[in-house]
């Protein structure tokens, strides 16, 4: 299977199959990120579509500096941030729980376990950049330097956001547990 840089080269040459492969390879990850960021599946799917259409427009000028996944996550993060800037987030932690209790099939619900529900509601309480950093770090396994590249900050700031976010999550968890 060709790697991302090869696929991008092929896409620039007009290879549509390469675009197909690239989308299928990265779609699940980007969808998951948007879902975690936004908390609403339908909106996340729309934003994921935007991400890939922005990608295809930008790809002709793309120069491989750093990882392609970081570039893609940058587009995804910016797209989600633009969404928040334009709209007041309609969902609170309650909405996520409602969605989970909707009685839909496991494939339809975003989250299933109680702990996961709790985690999401606590995540949503965090400031945007900390939440984003935590999602990228813990859900997507990205290192601080990658997160820094995506968020356009220095690695120290990214590390600080992860730490501060984690501290706040721990505190919120303890409060919820009555500890």
């Amino acid at each position: 299977m060709p790697d991302d840089s090869k696929l991008i080269r092929l896409i620039k040459q007009g290879d549509k199959q390469a675009f197909d492969t690239l989308v299928r390879r990265h779609y699940p990850n980007i969808l998951a990120f948007c879902c975690r960021r936004i908390g609403n599946r339908a909106t996340a799917e729309d934003l994921t579509q935007d991400v890939f259409l922005k990608l295809v427009a930008a790809i002709y000028k793309y120069r491989a500096v750093g990882k392609f996944s970081n570039f893609l996550f940058t587009i995804a993060a910016n797209t989600c941030n633009d969404f928040f800037r334009k709209k007041t987030p309609a969902l609170s932690g309650d909405d996520i729980e409602e969605q989970a209790d909707s009685g839909g099939s496991p494939e339809d619900t975003l989250i299933g376990g109680e702990q996961a529900k709790q985690l999401y509601s606590q995540l949503r309480a965090l400031p945007d950049m900390q939440r984003e950093a935590l999602i990228l770090h813990y859900f997507h396994g990205l290192k601080a330097k990658d997160i820094a590249e995506i968020q356009g900050v220095v690695p120290a700031t990214a590390k600080s956001r992860i730490k501060q976010g984690l501290d706040k999550l721990r505190k919120a968890y303890k409060e919820d547990m009555g500890l």
Partner: peptide, 9 residues
């Protein structure tokens, strides 16, 4: 100015 794959198609 057509890239290779576009040109072939």
């Amino acid at each position: 100015g057509l890239p290779k794959f576009s040109a072939e198609e």
